[in-house]
Design a protein around this nucleic acid. Sequence first.
DNA 1: GAGCAGGACCTAA
DNA 2: TTAGGTCCTGCTC
Length: 341
Amino acid sequence: MTFCKHITFFFQCKTDLSMGSPGYGQVGSTSHSPLYVSHAHTDTKRAWQDEVEDVKPLHSLLGPSELSWPGVHLPYCERLVTEDNPWLLRVAEAAPSLLPSRPTEQSPAIHSQAHSTPQELEGQVEERCLEQVQSMVVGEVLKDIDTACKLLNITPDPMDWSCVHVQKWLLWTEHLYRLPQVCKMFLELTGRDLCSLTEEDFRQRSLQCGDILYAHLDIWRSAAGMKERCPVGDGKSVVDDPWSDVVSSYPSQPIHLWQFLRELLLKPHNYSRCIRWLNKEKGIFKIEDSAHVARLWGIRKNRPAMNYDKLSRSIRQYYKKGIIRKPDASRRLVYQFVNPV
DNA sequence: GAGCAGGACCTAA
DNA sequence: TTAGGTCCTGCTC
């Protein structure tokens, strides 16, 4: 149940970021829930949340009330499912019944159970929806952990992490979720040490985001536990991207810059604000936030002094090798993989 | 000023 | 040997 709770939280983090919330700059916890995150609202988001508060939700997507995620109540799915929110877009694709259905669009499941009372039917449909969404969310979380492992060159199980791995993970989590700097609060700790800390210990080390870090770590631990129980294949969802094979071969090998860039491009819900496809078929991409991409590369390579100047020099080395080229000299920060597939 | 191109040199694997 | 990090100059936008 804790896993579900933290996954709900994780999902919320991701969605906040994909919705453009400044979010974690102003993270705070409250006494009523360790997972509560207070946001510095933009006007739009404030207005949106006000609307949410006005209408009592029928039910939450992810479970009982204590697990509810304030941003994902059924009446609001339609407005959440936008290109800015690819997670929900995928949820909606996989579980279209979650969207408010019109009277003429009843699902076959409902027709097939004509003998049930309306209340029973509603309960059954809701249960199926919840199962679908929960399995999707868990799948997404596992995929993200897998990606982070590849990018950071760390194992999925925090218990196996060295001090360096812990620092990498902290830097990564800080960066990905816009958390304040906390690395110094966890110096000289191995993964095992980190896992032995309680939530209270985390809070003591970082008042601002100790609980959030604890939640993320708990997700990783739980995911590692799940992988142990269901090893190889099952549980590992197939990434529907033709390049996933290319990058899946190096969990413990040195990663090339071009591979790293592709990894980022393959995770648009995490990184589209720093790097994104302009034309995926042709392999043309644009670096939207050069400093951010350089910093991510620096974290991955343990090069704190990495910057875009150096990163771009490395990209240019690929010109001669025929790996990357410049599709249009006048378009800044735009590059192209010579062999997209 | 930021991005880009490319030379030169260095280090780690 | 290779990949890439670092520093540099000079150019364009």
